[in-house]
Structures are given as structure tokens and as C-alpha cells.
Amino acid sequence: MSQQNMTIYDVLEQYRSLSRDQLHKGKLFERMIAQFLMTDPQYANKLQEVWMWADWPGRWQAENAGIDLIAETLEGEYWAIQCKFYDAVTPSRKNISLLFWQMQARSFW
């Protein structure tokens, strides 16, 4: 299949097949999301930088704070982003809503 004919589903399936383990699969996905945020017009016009958590200059010592990416807006605000690369079976809306509410309750700053 040529790259011009690839869908996001094809890319995700490639990531699943190329990954050595869950951690590797997650890191591939995080890098893809960082690139997406910097190139998609909806976000590229709002963001000046997107870092992997480990590369963010303001990172504190916590190795795993539940944050995968940090984005800095053009106004100097920071977004903490958690990426989830689910299996091909879509998670239920209930599970996604629960995760959203749990994450809102946590304070990182």
C-alpha cells in the first residue's frame, strides 16, 4: 500500500505490528500525536512547541506523572497531555468519561 493511500487505521495497525511491547507502542503513538499537534492547522496555529514528557525543560523528577506530552501555547500557557493508544476495539464512552473526570481532579501544577 502506498503512503498516499494509508489511513490513520493503517498507520495504527503498523504501530501495533512493529512494536516490541506496550511501552514501545505507546512511545510511537506519543511521537505521532506530538507531530500531529504541530502540523494540524487546528493546533499548529495555537502551539509553539510540543515536548515528550522526558524532554520538557520544566519536568520535575517524577519519571511517570501520567503526562506524556507538554504543549506550550503561543500565549505561554502549558497543556499536559496524556496519550492513550487503545486496542482496535474502541473503549466504551463510560470508560473515557471516567478517565476524563479522574484526570480533571488531579493537579499537576
Rank of each mutant, 00 (worst) to 15 (best):
K46R: 11
M1I: 12
S19T: 07
Y86I: 00
E49D: 15
G76E: 05
S17Y: 04
E77H: 10
F108Y: 07
W53V: 01
S97V: 06
A54F: 00
L74A: 10
L69M: 03
A71M: 02
N5C: 13
F36S: 09
N95Q: 12
H24M: 08
S92N: 01
D10A: 15
L99G: 02
Y15H: 08
L74M: 13
I96T: 06
S17N: 13
W79K: 08
W109R: 08
T7F: 03
K94F: 07
L69R: 04
K94M: 09
I33C: 13
D68T: 04
L12E: 08
I33G: 10
N45L: 06
G76D: 08
W56M: 07
F108P: 00
R16P: 00
Q3H: 14
W53G: 03
A62I: 10
P41M: 04
W53N: 05
M6I: 08
V50I: 07
L98E: 07
P57Y: 02
V50N: 09
E63V: 12
A105H: 02
P41H: 04
V11I: 15
A44C: 07
W51C: 09
S17K: 13
S17F: 03
R106K: 10
L98G: 00
I33W: 06
T73M: 01
A62Y: 04
W51P: 08
L23C: 06
E72Y: 05
W101R: 09
S19F: 05
W101D: 05
D40A: 15
R59N: 06
E77D: 13
D87Y: 01
E13I: 00
G58E: 10
R59G: 03
I8A: 14
Y15Q: 13
M6V: 12
L99H: 01
M103I: 02
Q48S: 15
K25N: 13
P91V: 01
L23A: 14
P91L: 05
Y86L: 01
Q61E: 10
W60S: 11
N45D: 12
S17Q: 14
A44I: 02
Y86C: 09
I96P: 00
D10I: 09
Y43K: 00
A44L: 03
Y15E: 11
